[in-house]
Amino acid sequence: MSLQELLQQIANGLVVGSVYGLIALGYTMVYGIVRLINFAQGGLYEVGAYLGVFFFTLMGKFGLQYPIPAVLITLVISMTLTGALAFVVERVAYRPLRNAPLLAPLVSSLAMFFLLISVVQVVTGAEPLTYPSVLSPAPLHLGPIVLSPTSLIIFFAAILLMVGMQQFVRRTKVGKAMRATAANREAAALMGINTTRIVSLTFVLGGAMGAAAGILYGVNYGTVTYDMGEFGGLVAFTAAVMGGIGNVPGALVGGLTVGVLSSFASTFLPNQWNEAIVFAILILILAIRPQGILGERVAERA
């Protein structure tokens, strides 16, 4: 492989990885607070992507075709709706099982995930849907690397969202309340923090990030399929674990790493092995280094 190809693969991997990182953010934030793998995150990502198609198409019908405002409006609406859906997920599938053994909320979030993707499947008839092409397909030449303007925008949008979320959690009052709740829920309540609401908010933000990832993915690849939530969810989970689950900046690091790794895998091996390779990476990471690359905060709840 020439240097140029190598750089190209890294660039491709970073674009995909930034999307994974966004989904991973949802896993990691929820896990940080309630110590639960929210399987539903993969489903929320998929629902977000499909809502995106719907609103893009709708705006096209109303003649709103300027690409950037259309993307922004779609992002805002879909993220809001998916966030609301995440709120419902927390209310229905997590909150009543707060004091139950781990298996119960795990199974209920799994059931939620399956419910979400099944509903998408039923509503859309399991047909892949096409995203309208947003920007001119003319590729940009950045030195030796060739990227479409779309993928550049996606990369920066994803990074922007992730950095924004990180700053939100670090600096704002609510963000501090989230970190306090993650660190010690009882003590947080004693400070006057409504921890139940913080948990809800965390699910909502995670869902909104998932929706953003779904739309960016759709814009980048042009199609969305009803099974994207399963693969995307798993890969993003791998990313979250790689970055150290519960660690917000780690989600970005993990996402980019997994993106680049799978991009390399697809150059060295026939394309159809891509998924299997990602799964193998997942198992290896979990088996060898479950605390992640950054190696922080592995909470126990066996």
């Binding site: 781990l102 795990l106 799994l110 798993l234 674990v241 299997a276 193998a280 979990l286």
Partner: peptide, 26 residues
Amino acid sequence: TLRVRGDYLAIMTLGFGGIVYYAAQN
């Protein structure tokens, strides 16, 4: 896989199922 926590195990088995599925295809 069995030495990791319960929730990680669930994910790992999911990954294993995925590998077998894609292996069957390829």
